[in-house]
Nucleic acid binder design. Structure first.
Length: 756
DNA sequence: CTTGCAATGACTGAT
DNA sequence: TCATTGCAAG
């Protein structure tokens, strides 16, 4: 057990106290993952069967990495039997095992957020409700938080407080939507993300034998990032640990950043109430960051009221001060940050993977991508539109889903007319009406038109029959042939492969490549099982809905600059961290300014961001940025001021030389007095007046007469001179604009006004 | 039923 | 700005 010698006394205690309830409060960078890993390894070495251990992590990637480390210590054959993963993936598997008890097929579909919202949109339309009052996102949020608090549709309707709340907010029929949604999901054999936790609770509540089985199987339970669990998750863990009480939760209240997902910080604050004999271990030594970073982070988090007292410290070097950078625009912010990365890389021989750019919202990535591309620096963006959410991927997965579970309504709607086969919207609506009328699933109506007539024209019915036959033929193969083989068959015979192959536009080519990448992934998956086993497509589909980009990182992505939201960066560390967009209304988000608790969560988010950095942290903000196409002015985030000034160094790259903090404050005051440059209203007014006074695009006569040397005006680029033309009559022009340089413009689209 | 264009609303965060 | 949706015409 040599590995134990590498631990400090507190870490060692947390590892060795395996019996009974314990809570590990782990400050940022305090070796939390090591404690978890070694605790599991230690348990196994002491003779605990890995089969009896359940470890719940925050991401699948974390689980995978931890498993590898444990395997290195105790051997792979042992580590294999550990149950380890996110709440969602672990309990999805358990639910599949017992799905019959709940009336679900074992191949039930997992609806992702897109699917849930699309179904809600359909239901809102069917109930003839206004989707401006009942915005699908909002409705989904309401239903989601109900489920996270274990409130069913019936419970929702019966809860007078909730119903009153909905009535107050002008949405009295929300409970009807929830009821319809619950029913439709069930009929489609589908669970949404929240169901995976909710139904696990239901399973354990209604089937004591199942609960009993897992209570005795999971003798040792470990939960990582406990501060970010919601009520539903909390209760699952509590029930499972109810027999042996060997529960170890690890977390840091200062890093609780998921309340929007129902996470309840009280879970960690109240742990001692549930388990009065709980031991608490505090890990306070930070091994990750410089003193400057640790102390700066402490000075921020001290501004929060709600917290468990702790003293995070480090024996690392003092390190550099935290640089604060101010730029004029978001684009300049991209350039400056990128240049700094380039310089640092050169001066300190750093790898690309040593750098991370962290932002509050996904939409901020654009200016950094552009700047990085210009300097030819490799980067990888996490989050945002993930691979599995791309249209072409979801389309093909739609066929797979339908093959595994033909009742899957969202998959059906997605692919029944893609590629185009002449089954349009009206036909599908007729089918939905019939399905609701007979109270059966869409697939039942499609596959048995005699029993469930829906009044479609004969030609359309024939097309539907052909589609149904195709899906049925895939189903026959589902648990017969190798998953890769079936995936290939479907991709070809559905027509998707041809459709994308024929599209030679750059986007089309990339979509085709994505499909090939998905197929390659399935191939890899089917080859990963033992020689004498066959991996079916249904096996691949089991948790594909729960995969994220971070889960299947490719080798070629290893040495790249990381771009991600701060939320996604939790648990990671980088030598050089750039926290960008530190502006009021962006970070902290304007949605969080209404209450102290929300603002405190933003502050914890900033704390998380800063504590990702090992060597150097840099903060940046822009005094103006584009938002929805409007240029708005912004002022520096209050979080910059909250850091003790002794840790900061204010640099101004656009003017050269540093400035004092007083100057920042001065500028803040100036910024406050400046109004939005182009408000939304101004933009609309401008648009209207431009319609009144001048043609939308150059008049036909004007454009036909366009010649090289003419002066023109472009809406965005200003005045310019035509220096080249293509086509007769001219279709494309090269125009020199003094402000932005040469631009190629399609006359069809560019709103050029001809001056001479 | 499909196509093309205008209008519209989205930007917190993610399993 | 960008992607999705609604509407008119073929």
């Amino acid at each position: 057990m040599n590995y134990l010698e590498t631990l400090n006394p507190q870490q060692l205690e947390a590892v060795k106290n395996t019996e009974g309830p314990s809570m590990v409060i782990a400050g940022a960078g305090s070796g939390k993952t090591r404690v978890l890993t070694y605790r599991i390894a230690y348990l196994i070495e002491k003779g605990v069967d890995p089969f009896n251990i359940l470890a719940l992590t925050f991401t699948n990637k974390a689980a995978k990495e931890m498993k590898i480390r444990i395997a290195e210590i105790i051997g792979e054959s042992e580590a294999k039997n550990l149950t380890m993963g996110t709440f969602h993936s672990v309990f999805a598997r358990i639910l599949r095992h017992h799905s019959d008890k709940m009336g679900y097929p074992s191949n039930f579909t997992i609806y992702d957020t897109q699917d849930s919202r699309s179904l809600l949109r359909t239901i809102i339309k069917e109930l003839k409700l206004d989707d401006k009052t009942y915005k699908p996102n909002l409705v989904h949020g309401r239903i989601s938080s109900a489920k996270n608090n274990l409130i069913s549709a019936a419970g929702y309707e019966a809860n007078t407080d909730i119903v009153a709340e909905d009535r107050m907010s002008g949405k009295p029929r929300l409970f009807e939507i929830y009821k319809a949604y619950e029913k439709r999901c069930f009929k489609a054999g589908a669970m949404d993300f929240d169901d995976l936790l909710y139904k696990t609770n239901v399973l354990m509540r209604d089937h004591p034998d199942v609960l009993h089985f897992y209570q005795h199987r999971f003798k040792y339970i470990l939960v990582d990032e406990y501060q970010d669990t919601n009520y539903s998750q909390y209760l699952i863990v509590k029930k499972l640990a109810d027999v042996f009480h060997n529960i170890c939760v690890v977390g840091d209240d200062a890093q609780s950043i998921y309340s929007f997902r129902g996470a309840n910080i009280e879970n960690i604050l109240n742990f001692k109430k549930d388990y009065s004999d709980a031991k608490t271990f505090k890990l306070e030594q930070n091994y990750r960051s410089t003193q400057t970073i640790v102390n700066a982070a402490n000075s921020i988090i001290a501004k929060n009221q709600e917290q468990i007292q702790k003293n995070v410290w480090t024996s690392n070097d003092e390190g550099n001060k935290i640089k604060v950078i101010r730029t004029l625009t978001d684009n300049e912010e991209g350039k400056v940050v990128t240049n700094m990365i380039f310089d640092t890389k050169m001066n300190e021989q750093a790898a690309h993977s040593d750098f991370a750019i962290l932002y509050r919202t996904n939409a901020q990535s654009r200016s950094f991508e552009e700047a990085l591309r210009k300097l030819n620096l490799p980067y990888k963006i996490y989050g945002g539109l993930s691979f599995y959410q791309r249209k072409e991927i979801k389309d093909l997965l739609g066929y797979f889903r339908l093959t595994a579970n033909p009742q899957d309504e969202e998959a059906l709607k997605r692919v029944i007319n893609y590629p185009k086969r002449g089954i349009g919207k009206t036909s599908i609506e007729k089918v939905i009406v019939a399905a609701n009328h007979y109270d059966v699933g869409l697939w039942d109506v499609l596959s048995d038109p005699v029993k469930f007539p829906c009044g479609l024209a004969g030609a359309t019915q024939n097309k539907i029959n052909a589609f149904v036959t195709a899906i049925k033929s895939y189903r026959v193969e589902l648990e017969k042939v190798d998953g890769y083989e079936l995936a290939q068959t479907i991709a070809k015979s559905s027509g998707i492969l041809k459709e994308l192959y024929d599209d030679k536009s750059p986007e089309g080519v990339s979509r085709y490549e994505n499909i090939q990448a998905l197929l390659a992934g399935i191939k890899e998956f089917t080859e990963s099982v033992g020689e004498n086993e066959t991996a079916f497509l249904s096996d691949f589909m089991v948790d594909v809905a729960l995969l994220t980009d971070a889960d299947d990182e490719k080798d070629e992505d290893k040495d790249k600059i990381t771009l991600m939201t701060i939320h996604a960066s939790k648990g990671l560390e980088f030598p050089y961290v750039f926290i960008v967009g530190l502006e009021e209304n962006l970070f902290p988000s304007q949605m969080a300014l209404n209450s102290r608790s929300e603002l405190e969560e933003e502050r914890r988010l900033f704390y998380v961001a800063l504590t990702r950095a090992e060597k150097k942290a840099t903060l940046s903000y822009a005094t103006s940025r584009y938002r929805w196409g409007n240029l708005i002015t912004s002022e520096p985030s209050r979080f910059i001021e909250e850091i003790d000034t002794e840790f900061l160094e204010v640099a101004n790259p656009s003017r050269g030389g540093g400035r004092s903090l007083n100057q920042v404050n001065l500028e803040k005051r100036v910024a406050k007095s400046t109004k939005t440059i182009f408000s939304d209203k101004a933009r609309k007014l401008k648009k209207v007046s431009s319609v009144d006074t001048k043609p939308k695009s150059g008049t036909a006569a004007n454009l036909l007469n366009l010649k090289v040397g003419y002066n023109v005006v472009h809406e965005k680029f200003g005045k310019g001179k035509v220096i080249g033309l293509e086509g007769t009559p001219p279709e494309k022009a090269t125009v020199f604009f003094p402000k932005v340089g040469n631009k190629q413009l399609l006359l069809k689209f560019a709103r050029l006004e001809v001056l001479s």
